[in-house]
Amino acid sequence: MNIFRLAGDMTHLFSVLVLLLKIHTIKSCAGISLKTQELYALVFTTRYLDIFTDFISLYNTVMKLIFLGSSFSIVWYIRRHKIVRRSYDKDQDTFRHYFLVIPCLVLAVFINHKFTFKEVMWTFSLYLEAVAILPQLVLLQRTRNIDNLTGQYVFLLGAYRALYILNWIYRHFTEPHYVHWITWIAGVVQTLLYADFFYYYFQSWKNNEKLQLPA
């Protein structure tokens, strides 16, 4: 474990907690894409298949349970909670899951480190995580008004993967056999997808104005 990875995990944890807090306290999911949340639940499910078979550390297991629990409860809140569901904008959140899931699945079958079920599922979860934010970014551009918590949520999500890139660079130099080029490529693609959001986020923060994404 290195500081970059710990900072990345904490940022990721914080992003999920910010979202849960927003939905739980103000009982609203305005501006939140259910599609992205469902994709994240799928990412964690396919990535943590080994949660009960391979024990890595208490930290690793606890964090996996938190990510699984929080992502499914966010989906539950938006789908089932009698108050929260009313603020879900299903007419705007129309991104088709299968446009992302199917290409990632096909890619994972052909490009992976080892052709076993668990390894293909793990690789699928990496590819899917890289693009899972797209429905959310599309929704933000459609609804144009981005409330602070949603903006912070997306920012933290992008920051966590950027910190992971630093972690991979660090591990590449400190651990001889640490080779996970698939992870590195997926991670860089994921972070690049946030690049334009980061640009507008910093612009709005610098000019101290409301965050607006171009149509």
Binding site: M63, H113, K114
Partner: peptide, 10 residues
Amino acid sequence: VGESTEHDEL
């Protein structure tokens, strides 16, 4: 040693 596919990251 080949690429270790043991995934210790989240």
